[in-house]
Design a binder for these strands. Structure first.
Length: 263
DNA sequence: TGGCTCAGCATTATTACTTCA
DNA sequence: GCTGAAGTAATAATGCTGAGC
């Protein structure tokens, strides 16, 4: 997948491109590893999807009862902690121990949907979102302590807090990219306009030069060439604006120094 | 040098909402 | 107005990669 922005009229070389790596390639590269991983998970945790962590005896987070008291119930899930990511399975298992494992399995029975779909998405409630948002305003990244504290405060797993911050950063970056894109587009439009204007001006100068060269109408003795910019000067001190470029040195237009085109 | 952890990233999957017949 | 299918936006979750230790 990929997209690019290019302007057929304006050849400024501005462009944005998103590329994505070949999934098949990734699969083949890590296929063996992945298969092993999946096999392990399916063998070991197949009975757990989707599992719920409600009121684990040893869990470091507040119980579901506290959630009920602190937050409104989730629209899509009976619990604030409703989903279980594959990657976090191992960590949580290590963290909570076997007792928690047994508890989780037993709690799963009543909560799992009929399909047993492995991915159930939690919707954060307003309070959780607001707290996370406020925390993000203070610092867009979290250290482990902050993560743990937030997780406990919101009755989420640290992994969920971490994921939320990752996604939030991604959203911020995306928005910034959109803004940058708009700026570039504006800049491109300005440059196009300026280019058109200059082309027109050049055309006019060329036709003027062909019909009646200005310096040919002036007495030769009054013409001088400026050594720095190689422009023809009529010699009259008061009229230094009458100039024609005859040398090879072009005077490039710079949109970044020209106030009218600065973006 | 291999293994581990972690953050960043692209992508996927799910949910909620909107539109339309 | 009500309803269900289709489309879409938002976003939680997943899996891969590279850096640092």
């Amino acid at each position: 997948m990929g997209f690019g922005i290019s302007d057929g009229v304006c050849n400024t070389g501005l462009g944005l491109a998103l590329s994505c790596h070949d999934k098949q390639q990734h699969c083949s590269q890590s296929d063996h590893h992945l298969q092993q991983k999946k096999q392990k998970l399916s063998l070991k945790y197949d009975h757990m999807f989707p599992s719920l962590t409600l009121g684990l005896p040893q869990e470091p987070y507040p119980s579901a009862a506290k959630v009920e008291a602190d937050f409104q119930p989730q629209a899509s899930s009976p619990s604030a902690v409703s989903s279980f990511s594959n990657s976090s399975v191992k960590k949580e298992r290590e963290f909570c121990g076997e007792e928690a494992e047994v508890e989780r399995v037993s709690s799963r029975v009543s909560d799992e949907d009929e399909e047993g779909s492995p991915r159930k998405k939690l919707r954060l409630n307003k309070q959780q979102s607001a707290t996370l948002e406020n925390s993000f305003k203070e610092h867009s990244t979290l250290n482990p302590k902050q993560k743990q504290a937030l997780a406990e405060q919101l009755n989420l797993r640290p992994r969920q807090v971490e994921v939320w911050f990752q996604n939030r950063r991604a959203r911020t970056k995306l928005k910034q990219t959109e803004v940058d894109c708009e700026v570039l587009k504006k800049c491109c439009e300005t440059l196009t306009e300026e280019n058109k204007r200059l082309q027109k001006e050049l055309q006019e100068l060329k036709s003027l030069k062909l019909t009646a060269p200005l310096y040919m109408q002036l007495p030769a003795a009054t013409l001088t060439i400026c050594p720095s910019c190689e422009r023809i000067n009529s010699g009259d001190a008061s009229s230094t604006t009458t100039t024609l470029t005859v040398g090879p040195k072009p005077h490039f237009y710079s949109p970044f120094t020209h106030p009218s085109a600065a973006c």
